[in-house]
Design a protein around this nucleic acid. Structure first.
Length: 509
RNA sequence: GGCCCGUUCGUCUAGUCGGUUAGGACGCCAGGUUUUCAUCCUGGAAAUCAGGGGUUCGAUCCCCCUACGGGCUACCA
């Protein structure tokens, strides 16, 4: 299955952070490239200077790196087809658009944006068909098809701003072969004369994309479904340039949808519904708004990869957990579904839990470190490992490591009132106090000896297990949570165990 | 509105020569373990395969129509 000439690209525009839909597209490209021993290219499509967002490109590169996706050719790594910023390739596009003009597959258009906007408004008000710049309407508009050669020449020489539009041929059926959807056929009667070259001297997506994919020898275009409607235009462009026989193969990926309601996932959905939409946190440089990220929310990159890989793709077996290597081995475009998938934040958490359980104690201890530092705590590594061992299975997100373990490092300052009301009885203080005196006499304090003592004590006094254990837990932890009481006590140690009883009994009566 | 794509449990999905008790996972419910809370284990409910027509001895699977959902419809990508 290795074919070294395979070349795919991920081509984001730096207009903001990349959300998980984009990450998934990058991932599928990555898997496809790696599986075939091909090359993965990162190309920055920054031809829209108006929408440029500072920091966005850096964000994209860094967040993909966090996910474990790396590129063979990119702005940072360079490569045989540099530059990889479209904004630095304007000379190239100029050359190719000129070719299209000469071949009469494109034409100059002089209509101003205001004029076109007026046409649209008018069409809207009249309630008829919406305005479209196409083979029907272009004859009545100001362009090099409707104007005489002399007129065009003088307008151009006067330095009048213009755009260049594609001249869509009449009555043809354009066939797009899609690896996921099969054949998609569209009549050119429904296509409009899209702008290929803007008045600012830069190309639009359609031209830049086709030219670059050709020059960069891209063999497969794997991109989001939102591009399917313009794929026929792209096929036409390959044809006009004479590249149709070496045109890349297309695969249009279904979209990731909102968990609730309808529509594709958007950047606002995450924080609205309480889950991240971005791989890493993003701070909007203009508004200062912060959008949460998977990394900061406590997800592991391998879990995020697994979640995205499995959303809309499966190998046809019942396997759900995949390492990156397994994904590279098993991935196939043929097994990507055709319909959009609602994102399920609950299942995402479950995936992360699975990956947390697979981490070593040392790795988990490392994740707990920032929290310890924040509280200026520096427990020994043995102690830390004991804690991790007791707490790891309760952790779904990395932050849970702290919320499930803080009481191993700090004494509770408050006691859950609801739990207190429920379990604290008139005799409790006396029992606990008596019991703690017996614990003081224990020579070997560990979970077995403590357990034996508890059993012995309850037998002798008639105090029920729960009447002893539940208050003890409240005193140790401040609530009704945490690992088994005996394990908890053993790790805390005799002195701390007794000290917590002491201070707790002072506060609770 | 137009064009294009899609439609199996609440959600993600398996089912790729038409004959299956339509399988799994998340979530949910119940029981067990943990004398706590989670985890974990076991079991359960959950899809008349969007609806209607065909083709066929037989359709989730093939064809058509309808409905619904989604995408696109910028000098944005």
């Amino acid at each position: 299955m290795k074919s070294e000439h395979i070349r795919v690209r991920f081509a984001p525009s730096p207009t903001g952070p990349l959300h998980i839909g984009g990450v998934r597209t990058a991932l599928y490209n990555f898997l496809f490239a790696r599986q075939h021993g091909g090359k993965l290219i990162l190309r920055i499509e920054d031809t829209d200077q108006n929408r440029f967002v500072p920091g966005a490109e850096e964000y994209i590169v860094n967040s993909l790196a966090w996910c474990g996706l790396d590129f063979d050719e990119s702005p940072a790594n360079g490569g045989p087809h540099a530059p990889y910023h479209q904004s630095e390739r304007s000379v190239i596009y100029k050359e190719y658009i000129t070719r299209l003009i000469e071949n009469r597959h494109a034409y100059y258009a002089f209509d101003t944006e205001a004029e076109l906007a007026a046409m649209r408004d008018q069409a809207k008000e009249s309630g008829g068909k919406p305005f479209q710049y196409d083979q029907q309407t272009r004859k009545a508009l100001r362009n090099s098809l409707s104007l005489s050669e002399a007129e065009v020449k003088s307008i151009l020489e006067a330095g009048t701003p213009y755009v260049i539009r594609v001249k869509i041929p009449e009555n043809e059926q354009v066939v797009v072969h899609d690896l996921i959807r099969g054949e998609v056929v569209v009549s050119t009667a429904n296509l409009d004369d899209k702008v290929l070259f803007k008045s600012d001297g830069l190309p639009t997506y359609h031209l830049a994309n086709v030219v670059d994919d050709y020059l960069m020898k891209i063999t497969h275009v794997i991109r989001g479904e939102e591009w399917l409607p313009s794929a026929p235009l792209h096929v036409l462009l390959y044809r006009f340039f004479g590249w149709e026989d070496i045109m890349p193969q297309f695969a249009h990926l279904p979209l990731i949808l909102k968990p609730d309601g309808n529509g594709k996932l958007s950047k606002r959905d995450g924080d609205r519904l309480g889950f991240p939409v971005f791989p890493t946190e993003w701070k909007d440089p203009v508004t200062g708004e912060i959008y949460s990220g998977y990394r900061e929310s406590g997800y592991l990159p391998e879990a995020v990869i697994n979640i995205l890989a499995h959303l809309g793709w499966n190998p046809g077996t019942e396997q759900e957990l995949f390492s990156m290597n397994e994904l590279i081995e098993q991935f196939s475009l043929e097994r990507v579904g055709k319909h959009g998938s609602k994102f399920d934040p609950e299942k995402a958490k479950w995936f992360n839990h699975q990956y947390m359980q697979r981490k070593s104690d040392a790795e988990l201890a490392q994740m707990l470190k920032p929290y310890l530092e924040q509280h200026k705590l520096d427990p020994g590594s043995d102690y830390l490992n004991n804690v991790i061992r007791l707490v790891k299975e309760r952790a779904f997100l990395t932050g849970d490591l702290w919320t499930q373990a803080w009481f191993f490092f700090l004494r509770p300052e408050q006691y859950d009132q609801q739990v207190y009301q429920k379990i604290w009885q008139p005799g409790t203080k006396g029992w606990i106090s008596d019991f703690s005196k017996e614990v003081e006499g224990l020579v070997d304090f560990n979970k077995d000896s403590l357990h034996a003592l508890v059993q012995d004590y309850t037998l002798r006094t008639g105090v029920k297990m729960g009447q002893l254990m539940n208050p003890l837990r409240l005193l140790m932890v401040g609530s009704n949570q945490g690992p088994g009481m005996m394990d908890l006590a053993e790790v805390l140690g005799k002195d701390e165990f007794l000290a917590r009883i002491q201070t707790g009994l002072g506060k609770l009566s």
